[in-house]
Design a protein around this nucleic acid. Structure first.
Lengths: 171, 171
DNA sequence: TGAAAAAAGCAACATTGTTGCAAAAGATAA
DNA sequence: TTATCTTTTGCAACAATGTTGCTTTTTTCA
C-alpha cells in the first residue's frame, strides 16, 4: 500500500465529510448547500452538477444554455450541460421561461417544486436594455378569463421593460 | 415575335388585372385579398409571399417555421421562408408568440400593427392536447403591478390548457 | 417592353440540440 | 479501504434550425 502521497482524488470522502459535519468556511458552506440540494433531490454529486447549480445560485436572473456554456469556463461538454439542465428541470430544481427569441432560459425554482410538476405562479421580467431575465417572485400571475370552451392550466406571464438596474434616475 | 403559344408565365399582368377590376370568382377574390394586404404594406407580390400569407389566413391558430415548410408543399426554399417571415414581422403583418419549447410561432396581427411596432394586447393559448396555438383576440392582457424600479413595456401572456376543439363533452 | 430593383434559390456555414456508446467517476457494501 | 455495480461524462456522429453571400430569376416601374 502506498504512503500518504495522494495520486488520485480522494473520491467522495470530502463530500461526505462536508455534509456530516457542517464546517464554517464559506467555500465549504457553499459547497455544502449545493450538495444538500442535490442530495435532497436524490441526485449523485458530480462536478458539473455542482458547477451549474452554483451558477444559478450566484445569479439574480435566468440563464440560457449558452450562458452556462460560457460561464462554466469551457470545462464541460455541451452534452453534459444539456443533460444536466434536463435533469434539474425534471427534478423541479429549475424551471424554463418562454421567450420570443428561441432561447430557452432557466431559473431556480423558489417555490416548492417537486419532481414532475412545477408550481411557479410568479411572473417573469425581461429587460429591454440589459436583456437580463428576472423571476419576480412577489408578483403572482393574474386570473385570466377565457372564452367559452377553453380551460386553463398553467398561465405564463412575461413582461418586457426596463429593470431596476438599468433605470435611468431622473436628473 | 412568336405567336400565341406562351413559353413563359404571363408575368404580373394577371395580378394587376385582379387588383384593378375585382372579379367575382372566389379564388380570385382570395388572391385579391392577399395582394391587397401585400400592397398595403408596400411589399412586392411574389408567389412565396402569397402562399405563406394564404397559409396564415386559412389557419385558426399560429404557425411555426416548420409547419409552413411542410404545408407549403415543398415548393419554397427554407431560406425564402425565413426571410418572408422576417419581412412579415417587420411590416407588422404577423407577430411572434413566445413558447417554452424553442420553436417560435407566428400568427396574423389582427390589431392595427404598423412597421416596427406591434400592438398585440391579446393573450395566447396553447392547447396541451393538440398543441395548437390560438390568439384569443377578445382577451386582453391584464395590468401587472411591478416592484419598485421596474417599468413595464409589453406584457405577454400565454395560457396552457385544453382548447375548445379538444374539450371532451360531459356524458 | 426594357432596365433597375427586389426577391428567390443555392451553397456553404454556424448554431443548437439529440443519440449511442465507451470510459471515467460516484455510490454502495463487504 | 477496496471491489463492484451504477450513474454520469465525454466523444463522435448526426439532425434540426438559422444565417450569410452570391447568382439567377422575378417583379416593378418608367
Amino acid at each position: 500500500m502506498p504512503e500518504n502521497g495522494l495520486k488520485k482524488k480522494p473520491k467522495n470522502l470530502f463530500n461526505n465529510f462536508i455534509v456530516n459535519i457542517m464546517p464554517k468556511e464559506t467555500i465549504i458552506k457553499n459547497n455544502n448547500k449545493l450538495i444538500k440540494l442535490l442530495k435532497q433531490n436524490s441526485l449523485s454529486i458530480t462536478d458539473s452538477r455542482k458547477k451549474i447549480l452554483q451558477l444559478f445560485l450566484d445569479q439574480d436572473g435566468a440563464l440560457a444554455h449558452g450562458d452556462i456554456e460560457k460561464r462554466a469556463g469551457e470545462k464541460f461538454d455541451r452534452v453534459t450541460i444539456y443533460r444536466t439542465l434536463q435533469v434539474f428541470v425534471d427534478k423541479g430544481i429549475i424551471h424554463t421561461i418562454p421567450t420570443a427569441d428561441n432561447s430557452i432560459r432557466y431559473a431556480l425554482c423558489k417555490d416548492e417544486c417537486g419532481e414532475g410538476h412545477h408550481h411557479d405562479h410568479h411572473i417573469h421580467f425581461v429587460c429591454d436594455n440589459c436583456n437580463t431575465t428576472y423571476c419576480l417572485d412577489d408578483v403572482v400571475t393574474p386570473e385570466i378569463k377565457l372564452p367559452k370552451g377553453y380551460s386553463a392550466g398553467h398561465v405564463e406571464v412575461v413582461v418586457e421593460g426596463i429593470c431596476k438596474n438599468c433605470k435611468t434616475p431622473v436628473p
